[in-house]
Simulated assay, not measured.
Amino acid sequence: MDVIKKINNNVAVCRDANGKELVAFGKGIGFPKLPYELTDLSQITMTFYQLNNHYYQLLAEIPQHILDISAEIVKTAQIQLNNNLNPNMVFNLADHIHFAITRMQKYKDMKLVFSYDIEQLYPKETELAKYAVKLIQKTMHVTLPEAEITNIAMHFVNGQAEIEQAENAPNIDRLIDSVANLIEDAFAVKLDKTEFSYNRFVMHLRYYIKRIQDEEQFMDSNENLFHTMKESMSKVYECAATIAKLIYRELGIESTDDELMYLMIHINRIIKNTQ
């Protein structure tokens, strides 16, 4: 296998024996002078073929240690869970961990509540999430709220292959397109759907819609912070409320204030990146 481009010390773009490009994870594979031939394939822990462009951007943006932790967590999950995991879960989980740490630093007053319902419904995923949170805290020397166990457990739930998701994909894609149109109209911008920031927003939107469909919305008692953000980001709030109304018309379920607050954070981020 030829290592042709360094992403970080432990992640690199490679070319296999058939000439196909892939992204490989392995300790130190990006460190030697490139290009070079990697003869000891036991150094490779994970490989990813045909990655979308926005995942390459994610690899460049997320710190190396977060990518390494995410890869270790997903590798453990693959061993312990019987169902297949979405092959892109390493990147989705790394993005969530990065966002969770940023959110914790920026929105210090935000409360997150551990969900005992999730623990009862998904015990294996919850145990894996507890392991993940402990590993993150030990490796990165941060104290994550207990509720991150719930959030990461839902990544394992969503990351497992589900026929139902494939059947519902066209309807969800149509709903996401409608949400994008609402944001463009509200802020008089044109979202570039090939950009990483848009694809990241879509990923969070899919989780939001799934939580609504599964009746597992966030209800974390952030009333004071929600009202503060509502006043200081009134235009973003109006856009989020309009999106929530659209989803209510489509799915028949109202969004909680906490879901609106999360939606506001993600809308604000994509608008800033677009502008």
Rank of each mutant, 00 (worst) to 15 (best):
157 V>T: 08
155 H>M: 02
140 M>L: 15
108 K>G: 10
131 Y>W: 05
122 Y>P: 04
127 E>G: 09
136 I>H: 05
155 H>G: 00
119 E>W: 05
108 K>S: 14
134 K>I: 03
112 L>V: 13
141 H>R: 13
114 F>R: 08
141 H>A: 11
129 A>S: 10
124 K>Y: 06
142 V>C: 10
101 I>Q: 05
138 K>Y: 13
154 M>V: 06
129 A>D: 05
116 Y>C: 01
121 L>Q: 13
117 D>W: 07
152 I>D: 04
123 P>Y: 02
123 P>G: 08
130 K>Y: 07
114 F>D: 05
116 Y>H: 14
128 L>A: 04
147 A>S: 11
147 A>I: 02
118 I>N: 11
153 A>Q: 00
109 D>V: 09
137 Q>A: 05
124 K>M: 13
113 V>A: 09
148 E>H: 01
113 V>D: 08
114 F>G: 06
102 T>S: 14
104 M>E: 11
141 H>T: 05
110 M>K: 10
132 A>H: 00
140 M>S: 03
139 T>K: 15
105 Q>C: 06
150 T>H: 01
148 E>G: 01
148 E>M: 04
156 F>V: 02
152 I>F: 14
135 L>Y: 14
107 Y>R: 09
125 E>R: 05
110 M>G: 02
146 E>A: 09
126 T>W: 01
106 K>D: 08
126 T>Y: 06
139 T>F: 05
134 K>F: 08
113 V>T: 15
130 K>N: 06
115 S>L: 06
126 T>A: 03
100 A>T: 00
150 T>R: 04
144 L>F: 02
131 Y>S: 14
127 E>V: 06
134 K>N: 15
119 E>I: 08
136 I>T: 05
138 K>L: 10
147 A>H: 01
127 E>L: 15
133 V>D: 07
99 F>W: 15
127 E>R: 14
150 T>Q: 06
104 M>R: 12
105 Q>K: 15
152 I>W: 01
116 Y>R: 15
135 L>G: 06
156 F>T: 07
156 F>S: 03
